[in-house]
Computed example of a mutant assay.
Amino acid sequence: MNKISSAILISAALIVQAACQSPSDQDRNMRNNSADPKSAEKAVSFNDGHLVKHMEIKSGQTDTIFIFVHRADSVRIKIKTPSDTANIRISQLFSPNGTADGPFGKELTYRFIDSGKYFITINENKMVGNHYTGSYEVEIIPN
């Protein structure tokens, strides 16, 4: 009989505790958790989890940048350089299954359907002929 009384008392205490928590406290806890950038995983990001990557390139070099797709999403990938006339572009986009698409320009809008590890290659457009050495930034912009 003593065990049953203890079980009923513990159950009643748990019910009272849950009932005493105000809805505003529950709402605040939910808002705080959803506002935390670590708890809300990005659908598409670079391998370090960021949406912006700062890079340096030398003329004739090809850079490879990995992109992780955690769930399907449409994004814009954009290259920014100090000069708008810099000869640099997104050359190709490779999917996890090995297929490739490209060449592109300084901007690419793409709908990722499959999750996994994608990568882009960035280099000069050899048809233009202007050489570029310097800094650039690649940004993933969710649509």
Rank of each mutant, 00 (worst) to 15 (best):
R111N: 09
Q61K: 08
D101E: 14
D48S: 11
I90Y: 00
L51V: 04
K42E: 06
A7F: 03
I122L: 07
R28N: 15
R71S: 02
Y132W: 03
I90H: 06
S11N: 11
H70E: 02
N125V: 00
L108S: 10
R31E: 06
T81E: 07
S24D: 15
D114P: 06
L108R: 09
M1I: 03
V128M: 10
P23K: 03
I88E: 12
F68C: 10
I120M: 13
E107A: 07
S22H: 12
F119P: 11
I15F: 13
T64D: 15
I15N: 11
N33R: 15
P23W: 00
Y118L: 02
G134H: 06
G116R: 08
V128H: 08
N97F: 00
K80T: 06
N125T: 02
I122S: 11
N130C: 03
G102M: 02
G129F: 01
G134M: 02
K58M: 00
A100C: 05
R89H: 11
G129Q: 07
L14T: 02
R89V: 01
S45H: 14
E41Q: 14
Q21A: 13
K106N: 11
S91H: 09
F66L: 05
F46M: 03
R76W: 01
F104M: 04
S6A: 08
Q17L: 10
A43P: 02
A43M: 03
I140P: 10
I141A: 12
N29V: 01
T81S: 14
D25H: 11
A12W: 01
K126L: 04
S115A: 06
N32G: 12
K38P: 00
N87T: 05
R71E: 00
D63P: 01
T109R: 11
I79E: 05
L51K: 10
V69T: 12
V69G: 12
N130A: 13
N97Q: 12
D84E: 12
I77G: 08
L51P: 12
D84G: 15
F112K: 13
L51A: 13
S83A: 09
D101F: 09
I65C: 05
S95M: 05
